[in-house]
């Protein structure tokens, strides 16, 4: 009986063990390991040959132009996808809150790119962006506008990737905004209207403030997603032309798996982690009150 109750006390931990072990082995310990590696001039093939360099990798990274350039490129991508995406998603969500026949189909259409594989659908857009035979330049030509180099031009490549990313991911934000909008009490907006508020006033005085938790959620989630984005850069531009689309994530991949500069790449990974963890912590602080202790 005593043995039985002791065993009972262990049971909850037993239920947590499978998930816990997977997280421990493939996430938590490797995260600690990458921090460790970042202090070494790591020998990729023979780790025993690695030499300790302290903060050397960080110093080299923070004084290199390629790091700061990649940070600027990431910032460009984040600005192009996050505020722009937020604005577009909110407008679309507001339009779709009105009931009209075919609304469900429109919502489904907007959401559908989100479930498609990035490799597959980015190929479609590479073709659309093709400078010689692509549809987009065909349209520009038809409108008697100058044709662009798109993904082959250092000025337009990032804009091309941003357009693709917005097309791919906007639907998710739209759905989240729609959930947020439908949670706003109808009586409040109605009351504002009875008080003589215009549509515009009603939005800014009632809807927008009440929507702020949703807006913050979308803001943080999409920023994290954009900081981590990789596949579309791999297929569409390979970081080029002239590293105009080499983001922090892409630079990390290049350093680690093309040039095998493991130590510096690990230091870059730690920096990327700090940026993303900071954003996630921010999101958790914001949403905590409303979620985890309900």
């Amino acid at each position: 009986m005593i043995g039985d109750s002791r065993r009972r006390r262990f049971i909850p931990y037993l239920y947590l063990t499978p998930a816990g072990l997977i997280f421990l082995i493939f996430t938590i310990l490797p995260a600690a390991f990458v921090l460790y590696i970042s202090f070494f001039n790591w020998d990729f093939l023979n780790s025993a040959m690695s030499t300790y360099v302290g903060l050397g990798n960080y110093r080299n990274l923070l004084t290199s132009s390629e790091f700061w350039h990649s940070l600027l490129v990431s910032l460009y991508f984040v600005i192009g996808t996050v505020p722009v995406g937020l604005f577009l998603a909110l407008i679309i969500a507001l339009a779709l809150m009105k009931n009209f026949p075919g609304r469900a189909f429109v919502r489904l259409s907007v959401f559908s790119p989100y479930v498609t594989p990035v490799v597959a659908t980015s190929i479609v857009w590479i073709w659309i962006f093709n400078p010689q035979f692509g549809l987009l330049n065909g349209i520009l030509h038809g409108l008697h506008l100058p044709q662009l180099g798109w993904l082959e031009s250092p000025h337009w490549a990032m804009i091309g990737v941003i357009i693709y990313t917005l097309w791919h991911s906007l639907g998710f934000d739209v759905i989240i905004f729609m959930a947020g909008l439908s949670a706003i009490s109808h009586e409040l907006t109605e009351a504002a209207r009875i008080d003589g508020a215009t549509r515009w006033q009603e939005f800014w005085a009632v809807t927008w403030p009440l929507l702020s938790p949703t807006t913050l959620f979308v803001l943080v989630v999409t920023t994290i997603g954009s900081m981590q984005a990789f596949t579309q850069f791999f297929t569409m531009t390979e970081g080029g032309p002239l590293s105009s689309t080499t983001t922090v994530s892409y630079l990390l991949y290049e350093m680690a798996f093309i040039f095998y500069r493991t130590g510096p790449a690990a230091a870059l990974a730690v920096i990327l982690f700090v940026i993303i963890a900071g954003l996630t912590a921010l999101q958790m602080v914001i949403t905590r009150r409303r979620t985890f202790y309900q």
Partner: peptide
């Protein structure tokens, strides 16, 4: 423990590529 599980979300896959490759 639950907070710890949630904190796992903070660690992006990109960051884990190098150590997990070695592992």
């Amino acid at each position: 423990l639950f907070a710890g599980f949630l904190a796992i979300m903070m660690i992006p896959t990109t960051v884990l590529l190098i150590p997990d490759y070695i592992l």
